[in-house]
Design a protein around this nucleic acid. Structure first.
Lengths: 240, 240
DNA sequence: CGCGTGATTGAAAAGCATCAACCCAAGTGG
DNA sequence: CCACTTGGGTTGATGCTTTTCAATCACGCG
């Protein structure tokens, strides 16, 4: 039986039925973690890779000042650490934001699979390039957009990423993220996040109640912040 | 004859003499470009990959507001587009900052090499993971550090990256980057960059004249901004 | 009921941007 | 050889964006 991680990888690279079966099998060790649980700490060398199957998680860095910078949100289908293949030491931590279902993929299993399944290897590589691309867009978002557009841009990104794994309905999606966490992700204070959310509501762009976000007019929201989704590389946009 | 691109890759993965020879050969098409020349534009699908052998270049994104965000500096030894392997459309542009010597590596050559040389493939993948890691640190830098530390952090990063390819002497290095370009990289105005440079000079941390930066006390500069270089993944820090 | 966490609001302060000069050195053309 | 231009660096004054501090409110939960 397939899962969102497999589905997402196969959107990157055409995978055979066998490839998919192999991928599903390496996800057999699934665990449910409560919210705000550490998955991997900064400085560790993970023994296994982790894929998010349900729930939200985040990558973050702790600064000496005490500030925490969230550098990516992880949604169902995302692989937390392609690094695991190389056994690099983590330069950031990962923790759950909501209750999560996580697949634990042992390091040696991943090695074996990539040795024998070139398509899977390509898919993993491609997905890591997509993550790099997202990281670059975050630099631009945090570095160059005013607070209201910055927040809008993040909401657009999450909408498309969740839509890609079938977790939106009419531009509505569950968003188990506090204003403080948005603040940590966008380099703003939680107070300011609050005010910018109000602004977006006033402009009739979004509705956000009880952890559910409704984008009232996705095109308008995208235009509001100059969002262009190509950087997500969700479609197979390459030639040949 | 080897070049800085080959040297840098071989610091990621143990490469045989033959691997290195192959890599050198695919760099045979070298061109010298003047400063501020476009290498690849946003939206293009490059026919070949580019490696910087001499000089400085940058990745950048143009925003609708007219602002330009530089999302990475490229120094000798850096590969501009691992993406080329997958023929993804570029979501950012690349242009030279100073006069550069660039190796043009045709797409099909790269494919052929990675098909036959697993170590080179691993080195390329590793280098792309390192770039991802740098991008994440930039998010934290732009999102969470005050202007003076932000600038100091970038200067530390460049110092280590250049040292890794032998382009520093006693923490001195050539820095052909204008204050306006620093501003575009750090999400600040050029006026403010100017004042922060003065501040770092006053604190006796740096000397910057005529495009040459001298870090007077690297440890002190690193401590000033909370710099920790592990994210650069310049040493082979993985286990096994 | 009391407690804690997150959301909300207002007022004051800080950090940084913007605007507008001005300087300086290196071209460039007459 | 000089007048002119141009790009980058420098400086001061002003104002906006965002932060910080502080207080209050709403809610779920022991």
């Amino acid at each position: 039986m397939s899962n969102l991680f497999v589905e997402k990888l196969s959107s990157f690279e055409k995978l055979s039925a066998n490839d998919k079966r192999v991928l599903s099998e390496i996800c057999s060790d699934m665990r449910v973690l409560p919210d705000h649980t550490a998955l991997i700490g900064e400085g560790q060398t993970p023994e296994c890779a982790h894929a998010v199957l349900k729930g939200f998680a985040c990558r973050y860095k702790l600064l000496r000042s005490g500030r925490r910078q969230i550098v990516d949100f992880l949604v169902p289908g995302d692989l937390c650490d392609g690094h695991a293949l190389f056994r690099a030491t983590m330069d950031h931590g990962i923790e759950t934001l909501s209750t999560c279902q996580i697949a634990y993929i042992p390091h040696h299993t991943l090695i074996k699979v990539t040795d024998h399944h070139p398509n899977i290897t390509r898919a993993l590589w491609w997905s890591s390039l997509a993550q790099e691309s997202v990281a670059r867009e975050w630099i631009a978002n945090v570095g160059a957009r005013p607070a209201d557009q910055r927040l809008a841009h993040l909401l657009c990104e999450l909408c498309l990423r969740l839509a890609a794994v079938g977790l939106t309905h009419d531009d509505c999606y569950e968003l188990p993220i506090t204003q403080g966490e948005f603040a940590d992700a966008l380099g703003l204070s939680s107070v300011h996040i609050n005010r910018m959310l109000q602004k977006l509501r006033q402009q009739k762009l979004i509705v956000l109640v009880g952890g559910v976000l409704r984008v009232r007019d996705l095109k308008a929201l995208q235009h509001y912040c100059g969002f262009e989704g190509t950087y997500l590389h969700l479609l197979r946009d390459r030639k040949s």
